[in-house]
Structure formats: C-alpha cells, structure tokens
Design a protein around this nucleic acid. Structure first.
Lengths: 250, 250
DNA sequence: ACCTGAACACCGTTCAAGT
DNA sequence: ACCTGAACACCGTTCAAGT
C-alpha cells in the first residue's frame, strides 16, 4: 500500500491558519521567481524556458501565467529579487556610521557578494532595461539610489557631488563585477565549447606579447584589484567632496 | 518595355574579374553580418530573427545558412565586426608616439566612438562569452590585447604592470560605456514602454532625496565623466609604472 | 551555384475546458 | 481555485528539391 501523501495534515493546517506543511505547495509567484533564479544559476540563462521552468516545478508551462504576466516580467522579477537580496543584508543597508567611506565599502562588498553568488544571473542586472534612465545598474532600485544619495548627503556631500559619486560608483561596480563574474562561468551563448583555460598557440603566432604573458593574464587577482580600484574611487570622491565643502577633510 | 535591369553589364564585369556592378549581389557572409548589425542598430537586438533578417536581404531565412553556421555564430561575427571596426581606425591602431598616456587616450576614445555609434549593438560585445577568459570585453580580440600590452611594454611598463593595466583599463571601459550606451536607447526586453524620461512621482514618495535630485540625476555629463575617470585611471597607472621602474617619471 | 518549400522540434502565450 | 489540452503564431535549423 502506498504512503498517503501527507493529505491527512490538511485539517490541522487549516486550523493553524497556515498552508499545509509539506503538502503540494500551490505554486505562487515567489516560488516561481526563486525557481527561475535557481534555474539560471545551475543551467544558465539561455536554457531558461517557460516550459522547462514549469517542469522543474512539476507543472505545465501554462500554469505559470496565472502568477506571472510573461517571460519578460519573470526576468525582471528575478532581477528585482537579486537587487533586493543585496538590500536585505543589514550590513549593507544600514546608514553611514563609521563615515561615508566605510558606508560605500560595505555597499560595494555587499553587491559584489551577491554578484559572485549568482555569476550566471548577475549579467541580467546589467542588461535588462531599467525603468528609469537614471536607475543605473547594478544599483537598480529606487531604494538603492535613495539609500546611496541620502547616505552621501548626510555625510557632507552636496547634491551635485552625491550625484556624480553615484555615477562613478555604479560605473565602477558594473565594470568590475561584470568582468569578474564573466570569469566564473557566465555564459550567454548556449554552446559551452569552452577551452580548458589555456587556448592553444592557434592564433597567438602574431601575438608574441600575449603568448609571453598568457600565464600572468590567466591569474586571478580579482579580489585585490577590486579592492584597489575601490580605494582609488573613494579617494577620488573624497576630493570631489572636499572641493564642495572646503572646510572638513575627514 | 521595362528597363533591362543591368544584366547587359555582365560580360564586362566578367572580363574585369569583378562581380556584376549593380546586379543582384549574391548575398555573401559579409553582407549578412553587415545587415545584422544594421538591423540591431535600427530595430534592436530582441527583434533580430533569421527570418526577418533574410527578409531585409530579399531572401528566405534558409539561404543564410549557406554563409553562416547559425544564429549564435552570426552574433559572434557581428561582435567581431564591431571590434575590428575599432581597430581599423588608424588613429587608434597606431603604436605609442606621444607617450603611453596619449596612446591609451586614443584607444579609449576609439572604443567609445564605436560604442556610441552602435548603442544597441554594443552590449553584445560585453555579453557574448569570449573565446578565452583573459579576452576581456570590450577589447575582445587577440589583436587588441596584443596591441595594448605590447604598447605598454614598449613604453616602459614591466609585464606585471602591463597586465594589471589591461585589467583596469577594460573594467573602466566596460562600466562606463555600457552605462553611457544604456542611456542612448539600448534595450533588451522587446517591450519599449519607456517613459518620457521623468518617471512620475509614483514610487518616489519614499525617496525624497531621489525626488529632489531627479533633475540633476537626469543630466547628461557622460563625456566629461568619461574624461575625468579616464584621466584618473591613467594617473593610477602612472603610479604602477613608476613603482616598477623607479627611475623615469615621465 | 544559389536559393526555396516543406518539415521538425521547440518557443511564448491564450483560452476554453477539466478537476 | 487551480491546473491543463489543444491550438496559434513564431522561432532556428535541416534537407531534399527546384532553377
């Protein structure tokens, strides 16, 4: 006799006002978005299909449309979930406490952490068209931008400096994280005919410098370079700030 | 009587060893790649379809497969054509003459020029998986990397500094150009329901700083910011260089 | 030699119909 | 209330067949 698949808990669950504990969860938008992110993380973005996504949820593709307006909106929702998973980190979200440099350091590392956790999904954050042109990836939410700008202003930046800091900070994050993540198996084309890391001398006959430096080119210094470029950016922003408020040079 | 559509030139053309002047051009890979780029420039990447592309060339989709192995390869070819259109510029391609800073300035502006000429296609350069992990966008060809590294080494950078300069330079270019281009109508999703530039106060009730700075956030200072960030990068690289060769501080 | 018709497998999406 | 079968329009791609 087969096990009675947990249906006997239904009444207790109803009494408790909760959904049935380990019973068949009735899909729901959040579960779909989470499954989509999981899919991208493991199978890559090009493989994501409404039909295949339904399959991983034990459901036909058409069922998804009861919770999500379409594939484009699903991808936007995945981006939102990534962006707010950055925000949820209280280390990152909190207002400046040990100065604006520490504030931006925590911000930058919080974003970097999420990017490295989802190397194949992070490019979505960069490539989806933002809802407003001044919502610059990867800080793609009004909450983020508000947090950033209000943080800087509260730390003595004038309006113009805060905005130019926002621009410089986002450019910095996007360039560094996109390239770092690209080295960690971010694909776009479906054909994964990737070499073992060292392309043979095939096309390098006319590139003696590249051939000579190939080993050094393949070394991973991402963390250190991120740190150094970030420090440099902060130094640059310190100049902008002190130009605006010539008194304090904290 | 209808005009004889230029067929009478056929013999002359054959004698000259050239294809018939204004007769029906027999497709050919280059023409297809150029048409694809044109399509992306005008209609956007998401609209590009083998079938629609064939249509713009007056041909059925299947004909394309005689010249291009598939859509993925087509997109790679479009990227290659963009990348080498950067190289073709002799201003950009030439070896260092007025010092390495001028050399990198010309490089950076050459890449930026191409990016701004093809705002909707440029993101492809960033998102297609490179054939080698050390081919960092947007300098996505061995020729580019060779040119860059050899240029720096010839100007007194040691190997390690040249490589770290390459990393910093590509991160800088990618971040800045991707964000600049995103402001110039680079779409990814097919739905172009873009606002007129100023999102209404809809979601800005909880973002007072963003609302206050909205005008300033929407101003376009891309050119000046690019310049300033580039100068700063070059200064940083000058430090790296002089650490390696403590004698000259050109 | 160059192009196409017809076909295949797979998409995203809709909607009336099932339970 | 929630899911599905069947269908539609549209993909990328192959291949035997046309000219």
């Amino acid at each position: 006799m087969p096990a009675t698949d947990g249906v006997e808990d239904a009444d207790a669950a109803l009494v408790a006002g909760e959904p049935p504990p380990s019973a068949r969860v009735p899909l729901g938008r959040d579960r779909i978005v989470a499954a989509a992110l999981e899919f991208i993380d493991t199978q890559g973005l090009p493989g994501l299909t409404m039909r295949r996504l339904g399959q991983t949820l034990g459901v036909e593709a058409m069922s998804l449309y009861r919770y999500v307006p379409g594939k484009e909106d699903l991808l936007d929702a995945v981006v939102d979930s990534l962006v707010s998973s950055m925000t949820r980190d209280s280390e990152v979200l909190s207002a400046p406490q040990d100065g604006w440099q520490d504030f931006l350091q925590r911000l930058a590392h919080g974003v970097r952490r999420v990017a490295l956790e989802h190397p194949r999904a992070f490019p979505l954050v960069a490539s989806r068209p933002p809802e407003a042109p001044w919502l610059r990836p990867p800080l793609r939410s009004i909450e983020w931008v508000e947090h950033f700008l209000a943080g800087l202003v509260s730390e003595g930046f004038d309006d113009e400096s805060a905005v130019s800091g926002y621009r410089a900070f986002t450019s910095f994050l996007l360039g560094h994280l996109l390239l770092e993540v690209a080295g960690h198996g971010a694909d776009v084309g479906p054909l994964d005919a990737l070499d073992d890391g060292s392309t043979q001398d095939d096309g390098l006959v006319n590139a003696p410098t590249v051939r000579r430096l190939r080993a050094s080119l393949s070394e991973d210094h991402d963390a250190a370079e991120f740190e150094e470029a970030l420090e440099n950016l902060l130094d640059r922003m310190a100049l902008i700030r002190s130009e605006a408020r010539p008194t304090e040079t904290s």
